[in-house]
């Protein structure tokens, strides 16, 4: 019998701490598979964020650094500038990247920093218990928007990929989703493309991955994927936002 599919060696044996049905695990796997398939394990450095993925350094089987909240792009910059041959990626959630780290991601992008950013957008702060995120949808109930996000009071969600795509620095930006197998396969291609962009030295690459948070959305894993498809994708259209040949 031939192996059709098995867990990549780029993930460690440590069981993931994520809640049942949380799609962080899928995204971890796709990133790990991309590193594995591209044969870049021995020169890859990952930068973990603060948030649900804070323990990412325990899961990716490569050298890792853990950054302060929102600062992963700055840490990645320092790391990459020292060893430009290393492949450096950050893995960041929406609170980390789009709120407290808005300056760091914007400037890393506009510098065309030759790093890869995996941006996990689940429209909520997961680790701290379901507070409103910069990407929370209008009307979405969270523990700090208990009456639903009111744009008149706290503004509108940020479309990070579109915003960063207006800059001259980025070489590749796309938004993908992991709510079904087809989209997971597309997400994998996009993540691979982002790493290839870095390997080719083209500059900054970012893949925004729409992700489900059943626990803090108050849904079953199945309901959460449906909610993602029906509510998040209209707000955050999928597709390649920028690609420099």
């Amino acid at each position: 019998m031939a192996v059709v599919y098995e867990k990549t060696k780029l993930l460690t044996d440590k069981p993931l701490h994520y809640c049942p049905g949380c799609t962080h695990g899928i995204i971890h796997r796709l990133v790990a598979e991309a590193i594995d398939e591209l044969g870049i394990q021995e020169r890859t450095i990952g930068i973990a964020p603060v948030g649900c993925a804070v323990f990412a350094y325990d899961y990716f089987n490569c050298d890792m650094m853990e950054a302060a909240h929102g600062r992963a792009p700055a840490v990645a910059t320092g790391c990459k500038r020292v060893n430009p041959k290393n492949i450096v990626f950050t893995y960041q959630g929406d609170g980390d990247l789009a709120s407290i780290g808005a300056a760091e991601i914007t400037h890393a992008a506009t510098r065309g920093e030759n790093i890869t950013v995996i941006f996990v957008n689940n429209a909520i702060y997961g680790m701290t218990g379901g507070q409103m995120a910069p990407t929370t949808l209008p009307g979405q109930v969270t523990t700090t928007s208990p009456y639903g996000r009111d744009p008149k009071l706290c503004g509108y969600p940020i479309r990070v990929s579109e915003m960063l795509a207006t800059l001259d620095g980025p070489a590749y930006i796309s938004r993908v989703s992991v709510h079904d197998v087809k989209h997971i396969l597309d997400a994998k291609k996009s993540i691979r493309k982002a790493f290839e962009t870095q390997i080719a030295g083209k500059g900054f690459s970012l893949v925004e991955v729409l992700s489900a948070c059943p626990t803090n959305w108050g849904m079953t894993p199945q309901e959460a994927l449906k909610w993602l498809e029906q509510n998040m994708i209209p707000q955050y259209p999928l597709g390649v936002k920028k690609e420099v040949e």
Binding site: M65, R71, V75, C79, K80, A103, T106, H107
Partner: peptide, 18 residues
């Protein structure tokens, strides 16, 4: 850097890389 905050975190990354 874009700020002192970013600068010290770049230091973190560079120092972490040896």
């Amino acid at each position: 850097a874009e700020s002192e905050v970013a600068a010290i975190n770049m230091v973190y990354g560079a120092a972490g890389a040896g």
